[in-house]
Design a protein around this nucleic acid. Structure first.
Length: 113
DNA sequence: CTAGTGACCCAAC
DNA sequence: GGTTGGGCCACTA
């Protein structure tokens, strides 16, 4: 499976901003959800300019284990993202997407199977 | 096919 | 604030 769409979206994350796995998954409508994004990022190929460090967990929490965790934190701070106690101020650094909440869908003409 | 794991998310205790 | 458990799906053995 090609995670190209995921990488493409990640590459679109502006400097000094971060996005969450869940949001990216919703944006891309990935069947695997946040988990798929996590897997995609884990398999993230290097040398493609993919700012993987701008992808964080829900609530702006860093879910990446060592040693990449430290690297991610350093890179984020370098770009101007404040990382404190493994957390990020989503209020100021979250990348504002047009993602709509997958909430209720009234008048659905395609019910579950 | 089943079972285990994972850079996830969320509710509940 | 922390730990558990369920859900969700992709990938590997």
């Amino acid at each position: 499976m090609s995670w190209e769409p995921v990488y493409r979206l990640v590459k679109k994350i502006p400097r000094g901003r971060v996005a969450t796995y869940g949001d990216l998954a919703r944006k891309l409508r990935l069947p695997g959800g946040a988990r798929a994004v996590g897997y995609a990022m884990a398999a993230c190929p290097s040398g493609r300019g993919i700012p993987w460090h701008r992808v964080v967990g829900a609530g702006g929490r860093l879910r990446i284990p060592e040693p990449h965790g430290s690297l991610q934190r350093r890179l984020l701070e370098t770009e101007g993202v404040r990382v404190e106690f493994g957390r990020i101020d989503m209020d100021r650094f979250k990348w504002k997407l047009k993602a709509r909440r997958a909430k209720s869908k009234p008048g659905k003409s395609h019910p579950e199977r």
